[in-house]
Design a protein around this nucleic acid. Structure first.
Lengths: 192, 192
DNA sequence: CCCTACATACCGGCCGGACGGTAACAGTCA
DNA sequence: TGACTGTTACCGTCCGGCCGGTATGTAGGG
């Protein structure tokens, strides 16, 4: 056994646990998402999982932070390509939600996150933290911006609809939602 | 003991169980929502609860049906007062969501329903059933109506936001959302 | 030498659900 | 009207297993 990696970097283990936890969430859903199942999928033991995440909620926080970071990066990258500054991030928020191909795995993970946030208030707060971060990043997106709020609500509503299968929204309809962002409509900043 | 009511009408028991189950959901949240807790709050035993609802999911189905019926009634009543037929129900859907004062109890119950639907697909389907019923009731609300869809997404997004505390939406902003329904905006039918 | 980073073994309580009863009806037939 | 029978509604008890969490041991690094 190589001396260099007799002992792994703890951060690697932590990352692996989160990755595998997301896999479990994707494949087994909320009811199958247990610490045992997560540990079984990793190369380490259940004890190691509880060493890095002292409670199940802590693990879910880690997962939410991971997803929140990814989502935020995607939104900011999207916003960076938007020449119009006003309400830039809100538009990107909707674009990211509408455009992103929602795979069955994403749906499964989303449902787990949804359930977790519904059960544990602390997790909902964590999630809100990521949303606020994107909001705060956009100086032209004050709290009072009604039309920006509207875009965010549409994005959230669409996400929930996809997770629960509430409305079947065709690709054309998704495109139509994006047309809200064209000049002549609110939030574009051209008419306000 | 009065001879008339030695034995209660089973429908009354069923109704009571659902009522008390909603109370438990409102006060204890998802983590405290157990069959034991529900039974303890009723005048009957846990055995009786499982007699009327053979499984916990069945009980949740009953609760969702109850809430769905209430919500549907409210929407249709709201829609009945709308002179403009086109997209009538979608407007009422948004009005009901925006207008309804969301009490802490409602939030708690909503979170339980949310979690249940996220965990158990059958429950999400049940919920969708009630949404579809309202949709189907409105002949001028075809599946392809983009603007009606938008209103529903906003309503759903707002509901979720209220449940998780994602965005703080002031009364003025709620009113502003309703202004989407005034002439000059989509869905009113005046410009399409 | 001690601290971090794990492994292994184990616990215990909660909670969904099963089960065996029993009491109140309803219908039937004499 | 009353006995017989089946069904519905409900009670009380218990089980069993899952699953989050603990306690203890240990190997390697600084």
């Amino acid at each position: 056994m190589d001396t260099a990696t007799r002992r792994r970097a703890p951060d690697d283990t932590r990352t692996e646990i989160i990755d595998k936890a997301l896999e479990v969430a994707a494949e087994l859903g909320a009811s199958g998402f247990t610490l045992d199942a997560v540990a079984a999928r990793t190369t380490v033991s259940k004890g190691a999982v509880l060493h890095h995440f002292p409670t199940k909620i802590a693990l879910l926080e880690g997962m939410i932070d991971h997803l929140g970071q990814l989502h935020t990066d995607g939104i900011l990258a999207e916003a960076a390509r938007d020449p119009e500054p006003y309400g830039r991030n809100a538009r990107a928020y909707l674009r990211a939600t509408v455009t992103e191909p929602v795979t069955p795995q994403d749906v499964s993970i989303g449902r787990v996150v949804m359930a977790a946030c519904a059960i544990e208030p602390a997790l909902a707060l964590r999630w809100k933290g990521w949303i606020d971060r994107v909001k705060a990043d956009d100086p032209s997106d004050p709290v009072g911006a009604d039309d920006a709020l509207m875009l965010r609500l549409i994005a959230d509503g669409l996400w929930m609809s996809d997770l629960f299968g509430l409305h079947q929204v065709s690709a054309e309809q998704r495109q139509a939602l994006l047309s809200l962002l064209t000049p002549g409509h609110p939030i574009t900043g051209n008419d306000a």
